[in-house]
Write a protein that binds this DNA or RNA. Sequence first.
DNA 1: ATCGGCTCGCGCAA
DNA 2: TGCGCGAAGCCGAT
Length: 461
Amino acid sequence: MTLPHLPRDISRRTRLLKDGHSGNGPVIYWMSRDQRAADNWALLAAAHAASALSRPLRVFFCLAPAFSGASSRHYGFLAEGLRQVAGSLAAKNIPLEILTGKPGITAGKRAHSMNAALIVTDFDPYPEKRSWKTELLKTASCPVAETDAHNIVPSWIASPKKEYSAATFRRKVSPLLPEWLTDIPEIEPMPPMNMEGAAPFAFPGTFPASLSAPDTGDPLEWITPGEHAASERLRIFLREGLERYGQERNDPGLDGLSGLSPWLHFGHLSAQRAAFAVSATPETESSKAFLEELIIRRELADNFCHFEEAAGTYGGLPEWSRKTLDAHRKDSRPVLYDIHTLEKARTSDPLWNAAQREMTSRGKMHGWARMYWAKKILEWSPSPEEAFITALFLNDRYELDGRDPNGIAGISWAIGGLHDRPWPERPVFGTVRYMNYGGAARKFNVKHYIQKIDSLVSTNL
DNA sequence: ATCGGCTCGCGCAA
DNA sequence: TGCGCGAAGCCGAT
């Protein structure tokens, strides 16, 4: 079967991954990365396909035990977000079913048991999820399609290859934006009978204890999961933050960032929605800088994970940087810290400790600090390979936006020069760009940042 | 305060 | 084949 006819703005974001025998059951949207009911091209694709085929529409979400070291704070954020999605979907007469198990296989088997006509899923190049998709394709008997609901220009259209730098990627994506950075249609409600026969929305009774997620302490109080809180935050940023973004984004002592990344990671907010709103404002240094990060650099991370098989491992770093880091393998390090010392923020660098505490206690480190933080781990580790593993482990355990192509690309940039260029050679780093405390002190008031983190941690806000 | 050099590879022009 | 230029810097010279 080929895909049913879909409106052009949906079909151009959708591709058939596998053909198969189309059963006489429902159309399934396997929701994974884009956990929202609004502004979701993959949900739109499934809904239009269901209407075209006169079939019910079902939405699955599959809870994966021990996903990439996800911790209690992630499962908490995820669970509350999904509870809200279930409500929003039910208002459109669309049932959400929670599955538990190995996601690709579990979703495929469940779809098979319902004699599904078609499975639509959202595009996600995160390495662990690529394998889920492979398993889905092996398990499902019906056709499977994917829709890129996360990127403004679908990853497979933006570029046919792994891009070398933001500049090469920008040259391809920027000219496409007038065509792709559009408004997103609202989903039409399904007829009430679409809910017939669907089990009421429920999490597994023991959730999340059954998932054996590492415990990262009390739930985070300062941030609210879900689509509603995400769009509220976007509104506030547009009103109060955007105009300062250009000037203030690289000072971690200020609140100059949008703060949207946790919601973007879980798909509670559509990046296209945010970009569309910003693009409707007058063009300024701030709006240009924000769109650069929101579109070019974010989608470049997807490009990297999509085309680099070894993304998320040391072997995925560029050849030139692995070579130079190897040549400096035996250089003496100023000091070595093991992962527990790092995790507890007990280094002799107060700036680094503040960044680490910001991450462990709040689940979100400032963007500038993330670069410095990862580069210091390189400097303090016995080998670049260990530095990479340590940084990614801590990132994925504590950052709300961890376990994401953006985290992989960010750490690969800091430790392995990904999408960066070589800089003067020095010990340990070789020609990978170096950063140090002096640079921070020249740029912003380090003490102010440290005090800010002290007070945030002590008040738990 | 501001500026240039550092260093590698891509992609485009020729 | 040559040449311009790049995700957030550092450092020394002026």
